[in-house]
Amino acid sequence: MAKSSVNTPSVPAPVETLTARGRKTRDALLDAARTVFETVGFPDTRVEQITQEANVAYGTFYRYFESKEHIFRELSTRLFEDVHRREPTDPDLSPAARLVAANRSYYKAYRRNARLMAIVEQVATINDEFRELRHEHRSQLIERTSRAIARWQQEGLVRQSLDPILAARAMSAMVDHTLYLWLIQGEAADEEALLSTLDQMCLGALGLESDSP
């Protein structure tokens, strides 16, 4: 018996043209995709599994997404936007306090997204498109951090000998790899001691005086 074909559009409908019901279905597919990716990994995920998890017909998927790569790319973008978002801080805080607050915001977001982050890091090692996406979002974080470092140098608070971009890259790599080993690889650590150590090392690398005694 021949398998019936699914009549799917070549290009999914733009998000801005969707009805409220359409947006709800699309969001359900994104939630389902995240669950499946985190459960079986990117290589073993199939569109059929996503639609089953979302409890929608197979063909419905293609009204909103071109492929599993397409939906994974959107999930990855949302992930990085969440992880790199900074919670507002008191403008009267010292640079050291603002740096620690930004770090803690990043730690919380990384932990909240650790399972999907593990999949993203895995895919970035085998897929050029997602590797570039990972680099793009990392570059945004580094640019923001380097601007802060340059500003603090102008204010005479940070070592003038540091290259702001290289310093931002080194600090980001240290924090990311430490969190990866702890939250994804399961390396044992006392949470507060580990985060406090990361904070102190970031401050020490820049030469910023901690507000803590």
Results as ranks from 00 to 15, higher is better:
A20S: 10
S196D: 10
C202K: 05
Q160M: 11
Y110I: 06
H84L: 15
T197H: 08
L181Q: 11
Q185T: 15
H177T: 12
Q49R: 12
L179Q: 01
S146K: 04
L75H: 02
D31P: 05
I71T: 03
P91G: 10
D90G: 11
L18V: 00
Y106H: 08
T145K: 02
L183K: 07
T17D: 04
Q185A: 14
A205V: 06
V6K: 09
V11I: 14
E66A: 13
R86Q: 12
M1D: 13
W182I: 13
S212Q: 11
R98T: 11
L206V: 06
Y58P: 00
G207E: 11
Q49Y: 11
A101P: 03
R78K: 10
A150M: 05
L194N: 07
A57W: 09
K24V: 09
A168W: 03
V175K: 00
Q153P: 01
L99W: 05
S5G: 14
T197D: 12
R111P: 00
A28K: 00
Q122L: 11
P164R: 01
E16I: 14
T125S: 12
T77M: 03
R134N: 14
Y110G: 04
T178V: 02
E136C: 06
R73G: 12
I71E: 00
D190H: 13
R138H: 08
L79I: 07
V123M: 00
S172K: 09
A124S: 08
M1W: 12
E143F: 03
V100Q: 13
S212P: 04
D176N: 14
V56L: 03
E187M: 07
L141A: 08
S4A: 15
L198C: 08
D211K: 02
A109E: 03
A97M: 03
